[in-house]
């Protein structure tokens, strides 16, 4: 879907800079550079893979990783060359995507932060609480009008998923210290 999007679209999308060319596409270079670095890491890392002594196999465990690293480096360099020549990437379309909006990094950061709470909350406070915090936080970050609706919906979703997946389908989701004493949440 992306190939035919008009040129001004991608210029606007990269940080809201008005016309193309007034601002270097730092993000594009950075992402391609990270990909290239991962390729280099794959190549260096391949050298450290232990080849078991006396293994008769012709192609050891290192060859394929070398090839992947080379592919990644080559493709990333090609992308960098393309960008330098003015062929920028065209951001994705979507039903809820506003093609003219600049990237809202703050919202993305908030969502990532709320997702990170799962790492602590699932095991410490239990699945329902973890979901409630993630859901309410994400909905608030995305501009939900009433925060208490988001919290209530999040709590509801947490409890329902706990019951359906934990108790009914038998996945061992931790109910958390607040709910563990209720038999139905025990699974």
């Amino acid at each position: 879907m992306t190939e035919s999007a008009p040129a001004p679209l991608d210029a606007q999308a990269s940080g809201g800079a008005p016309p193309r060319g007034t601002r270097a596409p730092v993000g594009e270079y950075a992402f391609a550079a990270v990909c290239a670095a991962l390729g280099v890491y794959a190549i260096i890392g391949a050298g450290f893979i232990r080849v078991p002594p006396g293994s008769a196999s012709v192609l050891g465990p290192r060859v394929f990783p070398y090839a992947v690293g080379v592919l990644l480096v080559a493709a990333s360099v090609a992308v960098i060359v393309q960008v330098a020549r003015g062929r920028r990437g065209v951001p994705d379309d979507g039903e809820d995507v506003d093609p003219d909006a600049p990237t809202d990094w703050l919202t993305v950061a908030k969502l990532v932060a709320f997702f990170l709470t799962q790492l602590v909350l699932i095991e410490w406070a239990g699945w329902p609480i973890g979901v409630a915090v993630l859901f309410a936080g994400a909905a608030w970050s995305l501009g939900a009008k009433r925060w208490w609706v988001a919290v209530l919906a999040g709590l509801g979703l947490g409890l329902v998923t706990q019951l359906v997946f934990g108790a009914w389908l038998g996945l061992s989701l931790p109910a958390g210290p607040l709910l563990d004493w209720i038999p139905i949440f025990h699974g």
Binding site: T2, E3, A32, C35, L38, G39, A42, V68, G69, L71, L72, A74, A75, S76, A78, V79, Q82, R87, G89, V90
Partner: peptide, 15 residues
Amino acid sequence: SSVPRGLASLGLGLL
């Protein structure tokens, strides 16, 4: 839309 971007994506998956 771009061949090198597709191949870079493939490379990330392979990695």
